[in-house]
C-alpha cells in the first residue's frame, strides 16, 4: 500500500524512536524531535508509541493515499483537509483510496506528526528507522521526502486499544516557553552577571532552527573560555556557549561531542518541547537542581500516564 508525496513542504522526514547506544561511535540519536506528539499520533491509532510516522516541519505538505487506512495528526496545529473537508488533530481520520491530505502552515509550533495505522515502512538502521539527514541514513533513502516519493504502509491494524483524547486534554502550543534547565559541565565558566541573565532574561529562538538545534538571541553571555576546551560529550538539550557569547541549544540530531562550554542542559521533562520551538519564539529558563528536575520528570511522567499508559519520556 502506497502513500505518495504530492508536496513535501519545507522538510518532511520519516521519524520513529531514537537510535540509542551508539554515541561512542559518534552516532547521533535522530528520532522525532517532539516524541510526545509522535506518541499521541500513534496512540490514537493503537500503534506502538514509536511507530514510524511523518514529521512535517512548518506544514505545507500534500499526501495522496492509494489504499484505505486510518491516520492521525498531532503536534504543530495546521489547518488540515482530507480532499475538501477539514479534519481535526488528535482524532482518528478514516482515509479512502484516492484521498488527499493537505496540511497548511501551522501558526505556532514547528512539527506536525502524521501517523498511519501500522506505521510507515522506513529503512531500519541500528535499531531505528528514524532519518538522520547529515549521514543520509534510515527513513526513506536517508533523506527528506520529495514530490513523487512513494511510502509504503501495511493494511490498517492495531497493536493496542486506540486512544481517545477529549478536546480539553489535547495539548496546545504557544509561542513562548518556560523550560526547566539544570547546570551542566562548564556552567561555572559563566560570570555572575551571565548566570543571572540565563536565569532571568527572555531569549528568542534564532532564525536558523533545525533538527540539530537553534541559537538563543538575547543578552550576550560572558564565558571565561580560552577556546581550547577539550571536546566533551553533549546530548540533545545541552546548551553550549561559544566565545561569541551567543548560546545554542542542541536538538534531537545533536552531534555526540562538542568543544564549546556546556552552560546548561534542558531538563528531560521539557526536552520534547524543543521540537516545537520556532524562530522568533520567546524562551525563559527556569534553573533547577538535577534532583528538582528529576522530581519534575516523575510529575510529568505521572501526568502523561493516564493518556499514554506505558509511555516513557526520554
Amino acid at each position: 500500500m502506497i502513500a505518495e508525496i504530492l508536496a513535501p513542504g519545507q522538510q518532511t522526514t520519516l521519524q520513529a524512536g531514537q537510535r540509542r547506544g551508539y554515541r561512542h561511535f559518534g552516532m547521533p540519536w535522530a528520532g522525532a524531535a517532539d516524541m510526545v506528539s509522535l506518541a499521541y499520533a500513534n496512540a490514537l491509532l493503537g500503534n506502538a508509541f514509536e511507530a514510524t510516522a511523518l514529521e512535517v516541519s512548518f506544514g505545507g505538505c500534500r499526501i495522496g493515499f492509494e489504499q484505505p487506512t486510518l491516520i492521525a495528526l498531532a503536534g504543530a496545529p495546521a489547518v488540515a483537509q482530507l480532499n475538501v473537508r477539514d479534519v481535526n488533530f488528535y482524532q482518528r481520520i478514516v482515509v479512502k483510496a484516492g484521498d488527499i491530505l493537505t496540511l497548511q502552515h501551522p501558526p505556532v509550533g514547528v512539527r506536525t506528526y502524521i501517523a498511519i495505522s501500522g506505521g510507515f515502512s522506513g529503512h531500519p538502521m541500528l535499531g531505528s528507522t528514524s532519518t538522520y539527514l547529515p549521514a543520509r541514513l534510515g527513513g526513506y533513502e536517508g533523506r527528506a521526502l520529495k514530490t513523487g516519493d512513494r511510502l509504503e504502509y501495511t493494511p490498517a491494524r492495531t497493536e493496542r486499544p486506540m486512544m481517545e483524547l477529549p478536546a480539553r486534554l489535547q495539548p496546545t502550543l504557544l509561542n513562548s516557553w518556560s523550560l526547566r534547565v539544570t547546570p551542566s559541565g562548564e556552567t561555572a565558566l559563566l560570570n555572575p552577571e551571565s548566570q543571572r541573565h540565563l536565569a532571568e532574561s527572555v531569549f528568542t529562538v534564532g532564525h536558523r532552527c533545525d533538527r540539530m538545534g537553534f541559537a538563543l538571541e538575547g543578552p550576550r553571555l560572558n564565558v571565561a573560555s580560552d577556546g581550547l576546551m577539550k571536546s566533551a560529550p553533549v546530548f540533545p538539550g545541552t546548551i553550549q556557549c561559544p566565545e561569541n557569547g551567543v548560546p545554542f541549544v542542541l536538538g534531537i540530531d545533536a552531534q555526540t561531542t562538542g568543544g564549546y562550554p556546556r552552560i546548561a542542559s534542558v531538563a528531560l521533562c521539557d526536552q520534547h518541547l524543543l521540537g516545537q520551538c520556532r524562530p522568533g519564539d520567546r524562551i525563559r529558563f527556569l534553573i533547577r537542581t538535577p534532583q528538582q528536575a528529576r522530581d519534575s520528570y516523575l510529575a510529568k511522567q505521572n501526568l502523561l500516564r493516564d493518556r499514554l499508559p506505558g509511555f516513557r519520556l526520554c
Binding site: H24, F235, R294, Y297
Partner: peptide, 22 residues
C-alpha cells in the same frame, strides 16, 4: 546504561532516572 560516551578528558554516563537513583 543507555550511553557511555568518552570525550577527551571525560566520560558521560546516561542513565534511566527511574531505574537508578543518581
Amino acid at each position: 546504561f543507555d550511553e557511555v560516551v568518552p570525550g577527551l578528558e571525560s566520560v558521560a554516563i546516561l542513565y534511566h532516572t527511574t531505574l537508578f537513583p543518581s
